[in-house]
Nucleic acid binder design. Structure first.
Length: 898
DNA sequence: GACGTGACTTGATCACATATGA
DNA sequence: TCATATGTGATCAAGTCACGTC
């Protein structure tokens, strides 16, 4: 290979661098354990009017046919199941597929729900009454008259500004961020006391382009709206360092089946789902009644497929009690059907509680071994020989040429430390800055191009081949139900891409091998065949109190783990999702008292109590994360409890400016007006400290969460984020949805979604082509406006009986009637309007990520119910995977409110 | 109570697929 | 038909929080 001068891709890295009890106390909160919480949640939810507490998705199916509900009563379906639509389909979709129109479905659903509505309402009031005064020591006051119960709404005014990520973002970018403004709502009465801060603030962008025009005029916006084992040399070392830490296995004495008689010979191990079925059946047959999956026992308590909708509703309501009623009939049913689909909600989810009874899966799939390409990199301009191991790591580095990591000294330092170990002391390569990886990078580009140039048939064949190889790893059978596995692929080796200024970025993430991996599987299930001949799993466990199928120690941080879990659409995940939202809904009943209590503590003499009060206030009002302590070998980011003095600036008379790096090193910049006692308290916490000192020096997340649990069972800091996000969506949708077509309603939804994303500070980097796209749109609009002008002239002339003027090229235009011209003008106007609206949306959302909140914070029942009420096809809001993830929420009552 | 471990959720980003428009 | 925009799923890093141990 020709030697090139190392002109461009050369590194200059030098490896030489080297008082009183808490007011909130409750009677019996000494142990607010999960069980207690679960029962509280169940109680609360059963008292609410969602019309589906504890309910599983009926026969609502995700379009991919993979949601667990879709598998109900099925034998194991093929992964290529036909798409089946949800019952709240778009009219378009339903006309092609079903007899009943979606409207019909909606209506039916509504009337059905209407029946239960009244009862539900009664239930709500009962629930509220029962839960109204959960906090001991807080006297119920007339909320409307008590300023304390309106900690912010009545007194705040401010501007906030959430800025862009990391130091890499320009100041300009920051100034262009959406900047919510928080304002006072003047009303003395505050019927929205349950609402989050945002519901009462007026958050506006301080940049003209950022605020969406259609909404700016609305002063009554809800909350948001206003605010290796890599070769033998490392083997021993790694085995030592990756020894399984003292886990809490259920069956300690039986941890390793690797050498036990139970381990089948490789040839005996089932490798297809078909064989999995057989094994599950065998497993089931051996079980006595107690071991029948509760999900299946539940199955028996709900009528079969032929049940009417109303029966489904009834079944829904008795789900929790049905957990207890295990009846023999279910066992019979179980035996009679191959794979009885569980109802959507699994029985237990508390820590240490049984999560499954039988679990069968095929383990994990490993990335293919490294194939050396033989392209020689250059050292001092000369090609150098590398072993395949050395070349592999060099290639990992070379392909990152175009990334920001290449400008980071830490990245290169860490890479060199690890790579030089692989090279050995006698290797020609002594310094990274004399290396030229260009040839490998060029090779990489060529490979990419080759791949791109493949015909669609070739691509398809490759895809099918991959699917064939992976098929058996994609599914697990949990309590007899086929469920999708999430991340069944073992992470390939690479260079660690820590975010922000992560001290370990660039370190080699070595290849994970079978003996790094611990498998968790049902006791009677066959142990998955190790896919690499001659190797074996590290350990086999049968722990049914956890949901992971496999784990290995993170090679970058060996004390941490990488888990293989079921996919988001699985029943287990759905169950915990639902519990999360129920907990957040429960907070709604407590929030008034919690706010009153922390407001009183702003001025208490006990500094720790003061700090707890102020921190809770910030978490509630600004949706800050809790902020756990971090080690030195992690990126230097903070949350509420770990805020430094220098992260908060007091701006008289009562504004606070927050500026810190949060999760993922995303910058949070926000100036907000706060209540005077909060402002003063922050000032006191800062006094006598340096900028790098902890603002809340008497506080950490465990103290804070322990305190929160005294206020509400199961309450932790993160519940506030879910609560604020969901209630904001609920209120905005309710207030802002107007009559109009579906497109307009979808815009309303997006707007609400955007406000939530702003509250949660969900950012995304501006797309590289953003400015080009904007200029293109501007050009088009200008062009259309020109056309419009011409059309108007032509219309004037046509009305006077004159022919149209010639066009820009001097050609004669068609002589059109005034009516035709008027029609054209209207069409052009509509086009311009649409383009301007698109442009506005694009600008508004250029740094806001909507997806995260939709996936993690917004109770899907709010969305589904809203879609039902306003006849918006759910597919307009949820994509295929969200439909599968939220299958449990699809049969919600249209009148559901968060 | 501090600390470490373990299990889970949350989150930004990237590559690829699909839609859209010239 | 091709180029570009947009949507989607996968990936894996980085959080939260419960619990065990000392």
């Amino acid at each position: 290979m020709a030697v090139e001068a190392p002109a461009k891709y050369v590194y200059d890295f030098d490896d030489d661098d080297d008082n009183q009890p808490l007011v909130f106390k409750r009677n019996n909160t000494s142990s607010s354990k999960h069980n207690q919480l679960n029962s509280e949640i169940k109680k609360a939810s059963s008292q609410r009017s969602d019309g589906q507490s504890g309910r599983q998705a009926s026969d609502v199916r995700a379009p991919n046919g993979q949601s667990s509900s879709a598998q109900k009563n099925n034998t194991i379906p093929s992964s290529k199941s036909p798409l089946v639509k949800s019952p709240i389909l778009s009219p378009k979709a339903s006309t092609s597929s079903a007899k009943a129109s979606p409207v019909t479905n909606l209506k039916a659903s509504t009337s059905l729900n209407d029946q239960s509505k009244q009862a539900s309402k009664q239930n709500i009031s009962t629930a509220v009454e029962e839960e109204k005064s959960p906090i001991k020591g807080i006297t119920e006051t007339n909320s409307d008259d008590d300023d304390d119960l309106k900690p912010l709404s009545a007194r705040l005014k401010g501007t906030s500004n959430q800025s862009n990520k990391g130091a890499s973002n320009s100041h300009t970018d920051q100034s262009q961020r959406l900047v919510p403004k928080i304002e006072v709502k003047g009303s003395a009465e505050d019927p929205d006391d349950d609402a989050p801060l945002s519901a009462r603030f007026n958050m506006k962008s301080n940049t003209g382009t950022s605020s969406s025009k259609p909404y700016d005029s609305d002063e009554k916006k809800p909350l948001a709206s206003k605010i290796q084992q890599n070769g033998s040399t490392m083997k021993d070392k790694q085995q030592k360092s990756s020894m399984l830490p003292g886990k809490r296995p259920l069956d300690k004495g039986n941890s390793s089946y690797q050498s036990s008689a139970k381990k089948p010979k490789i040839s005996d191990t089932p490798t297809t789902m078909k064989s999995l079925q057989v094994m599950v059946k065998a497993e089931k047959a051996d079980e006595d009644d107690d071991h029948i999956p509760i999900a299946q026992r539940m199955k028996k308590s709900t009528p079969s497929d032929s049940k009417t909708s109303s029966m489904k509703q009834k079944a829904t309501k008795v789900v929790s009690s049905s957990f207890k009623k295990i009846n023999k009939k279910s066992k019979k049913e179980l035996k009679n059907s191959k794979y009885i689909k569980s109802t959507k909600v699994l029985p237990s989810s508390g820590d240490g509680q049984k999560k499954w009874s039988t679990l069968v899966h095929n383990g994990v799939i490993f990335p293919p071994p490294y194939k050396p390409h033989g392209v020689k990199m250059l050292y001092d301009g000369q090609p150098v020989d590398l072993t395949p191991e050395q070349e592999e790591v060099a290639t990992m580095f070379a392909v990152m040429k175009d990334t920001d990591y290449m400008s980071k000294t830490q990245f290169k330092k860490n890479f060199w430390e690890d790579w030089s170990k692989l090279l050995g002391k006698k290797h020609t390569i002594k310094k990274l800055d004399r290396c030229d990886f260009s040839p490998i990078y060029e090779w990489h580009l060529q490979e990419k191009e080759k791949k791109k140039q493949m015909s669609s048939e070739e691509k398809k064949a490759l895809k099918e081949d991959k699917l064939k190889q992976e098929e058996k790893y994609m599914w697990a059978i949990v309590d007899g139900v086929k469920e999708k596995v999430g991340n069944f692929r073992v992470e390939p080796p690479g260079l660690f891409r820590g975010r922000g200024e992560h001290p370990k970025m660039g370190k080699l993430k070595r290849r994970i091998r079978p003996n790094d991996i611990t498998i968790n599987i049902g006791k009677d299930a066959p142990i998955p065949e190790c896919p690499i001949p001659g190797e074996r799993w590290k350990d086999i466990k049968h722990d049914n109190t956890v949901t992971w199928l496999a784990f290995w120690n993170d090679p970058i941080n060996p004390k941490e783990f990488k888990y293989v879990f079921l996919a988001a659409s699985s029943s287990l995940k759905g169950q915990s999702d639902k519990e999360k939202y129920e907990k957040a809904r429960m907070l709604k009943d407590y929030i008034k008292n919690i706010r009153a209590a922390y407001t009183k503590d702003f001025t208490t003499k006990d500094v720790m109590k003061q700090q707890i009060a102020v921190a809770t206030y910030l978490i509630d009002k600004l949706a800050l994360r809790a902020g756990n302590e971090k080690d030195d070998d992690e990126a230097d980011t903070v949350g509420c409890c770990t805020l430094k003095v220098g992260n908060v600036e007091c701006i008289p008379p009562n504004k606070l400016k927050f500026d810190f790096l949060g999760k993922d090193s995303i910058q949070y910049v926000n100036t907000v007006e706060v209540e005077l006692p909060v402002y003063k308290a922050i000032g006191r916490f800062q006094t006598g400290k340096s900028k790098s000192d902890d603002l809340f020096d008497k506080l950490d997340t465990s103290k804070l969460n322990a305190h929160l649990k005294e206020l509400m069972p199961g309450l932790t800091a993160k519940v506030f984020r879910t609560y604020n996000a969901s209630i904001t969506l609920d209120e905005m949708l309710n207030k802002e949805t107007k009559d109009g077509d579906v497109a307009e309603k979808v815009v309303t939804y997006q707007h609400a979604n955007k406000e939530v994303a702003i509250i949660c500070n969900h950012q995304r980097s501006i797309s590289k082509s953003h400015s080009a796209q904007m200029s293109r749109l501007t050009e088009k609009i200008t062009e259309l406006k020109g056309d419009l002008k011409e059309l108007k002239t032509d219309l004037d002339r046509a009305k006077k009986g004159k022919p149209p003027l010639k066009d820009a090229d001097g050609k004669r235009k068609r002589n059109l009637a005034p009516e035709a011209l008027e029609k054209k003008i209207a069409q052009t106007n509509a086009k311009i309007e649409k383009m301007e609206r698109d442009m506005q949306t694009k600008e508004d959302l250029k740094t806001v990520a909507l997806g995260t909140s939709k996936i993690n914070y917004l109770d899907p029942r709010i969305t589904v119910a809203w879609c039902k009420r306003h006849e918006v096809p759910i597919e307009k809001i949820f994509n295929k995977s969200l439909l599968a993830k939220f299958a449990w929420a699809m049969d919600v009552d249209p009148e559901f409110r968060f």
